[in-house]
Simulated assay, not measured.
Amino acid sequence: MNDYDNITISVIVSVYKDTEALDLILNSLLNQTIDDFEIIISEDCESSEMQTYLKKYKDNKRITHLSQKDDGWKKNIALNKAVRHAKGDYLIFIDGDIIPYRDFVEKHKQNITHSRILCGKRVELGSFFSKLIRKGYLGTYIIEKLYWLFLPFLALDKARHIEEGLKLKKDSSLEKKLNKKRPMIIGCNFSCFKKDLEFINGFDEDYTTPSVGEDIDLTWRFQHFGIDSKSVRYLANTFHLYHPRTWNKQTVDNNNKIMKQKWDNEEFICYNGLIKKQKEKTE
């Protein structure tokens, strides 16, 4: 029996206008193997499309929609707003292009460990399969259940990380062997205690472009305080819908420079996060 069977959970979904993908995500989240969790739609925008789409869920008490002015990439601001709003003691984060397996939330819950972040991965689907799924011609639940049969076709469609769709039994010898290494956070599939995220003051809002700021930056700040990471690869699985990349090498390099400066200054608790803190003056 898991010590955290009665823990309250919030699933935070980061979105930007893509209601077609969100419809697929909510279909999965509302049909999970467990249902005792809230869903927060964290929109980095205030789109009329999203407001219109979410009207059909207006009576669903499990779903909350948060939005903000569309002012460039401000995902970390939206995430911090969602964290403040979350009622759960434990937070699971996915992106608006990530469709979770039907037991995704249950697998995160089963693997909760004191002072540890759970880090998952995703199968990056190719363009053809993503189109089939978006148009409703093929459901991800079918792919999930018959994954071995779909594997060669996913490979032909140039899917990436197709091994991440495989399911393993928790604590089996193979699962233990493959998940032995300390993982890094990937922002599209990870979970942590809300109090641990609050301790490092949440997401750093100094990052204003994708990559690094919503995952790698969290990893080193968590680890400094002994909040380690644990892999849930092959356990808490997800599909990533194909789309052109929203970041490039320059974006990554710029964010790495910001992170390096923060590392050198030992800013393990960020200043521009959940709470706005004044930087201490140095002589």
Rank of each mutant, 00 (worst) to 15 (best):
E106P: 04
N111F: 11
I162N: 00
A86S: 14
S130N: 06
R84K: 15
H161E: 11
L166C: 08
I117G: 03
G165S: 01
H114A: 10
M184C: 03
K169Y: 13
C188H: 15
P100W: 00
E144R: 00
L138Q: 02
R116H: 13
S127R: 15
L154G: 00
S130Y: 04
N189V: 07
S127I: 14
G120E: 03
V105Y: 03
L174K: 12
G88R: 07
T140I: 11
K176V: 12
A159D: 00
K194I: 06
G136W: 11
L151T: 03
G139I: 01
K194N: 08
K109S: 11
L149A: 12
F129G: 01
L125P: 05
A155G: 03
A155V: 13
Q110R: 10
I133N: 05
F93C: 06
K81Y: 08
S172D: 14
S172R: 07
I94A: 03
G120F: 04
L91V: 06
S130W: 11
Y147E: 00
S191E: 02
I133F: 09
E106A: 13
R134C: 05
G126K: 12
D157M: 12
G139H: 08
F93Y: 13
K194R: 14
I112W: 05
D171A: 10
R122M: 14
F93P: 03
P100D: 01
D95K: 05
L178R: 12
K135Y: 11
M184L: 14
T113P: 00
H108E: 03
G96V: 09
K81D: 15
L178W: 12
F93D: 07
K135I: 09
K109P: 08
I94E: 04
N189F: 03
K170A: 13
F193D: 07
E124F: 15
K107S: 09
N189S: 13
N80V: 14
G165Q: 01
I185G: 01
H114Y: 10
A159S: 15
S115T: 03
L146G: 00
S130E: 05
E144S: 02
E163P: 02
K194H: 10
K131V: 03
M184G: 02
I92T: 03
G120H: 07
L174T: 15
G88H: 07
F190V: 01
L132R: 13
Y141T: 04
W148F: 07
F104D: 01
F104N: 07
K121T: 12
F93I: 11
V123I: 15
K109L: 13
I162Y: 01
G88N: 10
C119D: 00
S127P: 15
R134K: 14
I92H: 06
L146Y: 11
I186A: 09
L149I: 14
